[in-house]
Amino acid sequence: MERGADPERRPTIEYANFVIMLLVALGIGIVAVLASALLGPKKASRAKLMAYESGNDPEGGGVGTGQRFPVHFYLVAMLFIIFDIETAFFYPLAVAYQKLIPFAFFEAITFVLLLLVGYVYILKKKVLEWA
């Protein structure tokens, strides 16, 4: 079915294809940026290079200066990590699900119930509120 590859080597070939795709895709971006850098005009002025703050002179800012933002974003990030990992666990189970019934069913239910415990907890903790 596959051209030029015995079944043994097929995955490797596919990964090579993947890398080629990735390189081409990134290459397009790089080429575009380079083209613009070469072709575009360069007439920078101080005002032009200032960060935009609705027309006022920018205060502070800059990378890594410890700008503060609502702690909520941290919470979302953490919740995401946790739930995403849960999802990652669920994928193999889902793929193998039909072969593993009935064990997998109880497994899945237990898993979802545990997940729900955490979900109810964050719900009650009002982590999911943005006000």
Binding site: L39, K42, L49
Partner: peptide, 13 residues
């Protein structure tokens, strides 16, 4: 977009 000036603000990484 290719021929426009490509700005990089002062404080950027």
């Amino acid at each position: 977009s290719i021929f426009k000036e490509d700005l990089t603000v002062t404080l950027a990484d």
